Amino acid sequence: MTDLVPPPSASGKSLMERVEDALLPLINLVFLLLMFFIVAGQLADDPLPELPATSASTEQQPPHADILVNAQGTWRVDSKTVDAQSLLQQLPEPDTQSPLKIAAASSISMADLETLLRTLEQGGYEDILLLTEPET
């Protein structure tokens, strides 16, 4: 097994110089990892839309969303109730630049939400933003 710090007789350097030489690759590695995470980490440019419960206004209006899902699990697109067969025809084409927005009631069942997400997945939608209101 080799020593990380060479013995003093082989290098002719003092102990401090040898320790500094041994730390240089570690410093380079940490610097490269730091640069990688700075470049790889991305922040979203688009903030999340403001939900009605968090806004200062007193009027209740639903958030701008492509699909509204009420507590009973019915789906509404452009103020029209739709079913699984007609949902994909009513929605815009899947777009990689802007995700599909779903405004769901906080009391929706997980089974209803899973049915909707599976239908959207079959339609080719990959990016979906789920908007809910916090319970007050």
Rank of each mutant, 00 (worst) to 15 (best):
L4D: 06
S11C: 14
K13Y: 12
S14F: 05
L15C: 10
M16R: 12
E20S: 11
E20L: 12
D21G: 14
P25M: 07
L26W: 13
N28Y: 13
N28Q: 15
F31H: 09
F31D: 10
L32R: 10
L34Q: 09
M35S: 09
M35P: 00
I38W: 11
I38A: 11
V39A: 14
G41C: 14
Q42V: 12
A44G: 02
D46Q: 05
D46N: 07
P49T: 12
P49W: 11
E50I: 14
P52E: 01
T54Q: 10
S55R: 11
A56S: 05
S57H: 03
E59I: 14
H64Y: 08
H64I: 14
A71C: 06
G73Q: 03
G73F: 01
T74F: 04
W75T: 13
W75V: 12
R76Q: 13
V77F: 10
V77Y: 05
D78Q: 06
S79W: 08
K80W: 00
K80M: 15
K80A: 15
V82Q: 04
V82I: 05
Q85T: 15
S86M: 05
L87S: 03
L87E: 02
Q89D: 06
Q90H: 13
T96K: 02
Q97T: 15
Q97R: 08
S98M: 10
P99F: 07
I102C: 00
A104T: 05
S106D: 08
I108E: 05
S109V: 14
A111P: 02
E114C: 10
E114R: 01
L116D: 04
L116C: 08
L116Y: 01
L116K: 00
L116M: 13
L116P: 02
L117C: 04
T119A: 08
Q122R: 04
G123R: 02
D127R: 11
L129P: 01
L131C: 07
T132G: 09
T132W: 07
E135T: 07
E135Q: 03
E135M: 06
E135N: 03
T136Y: 00
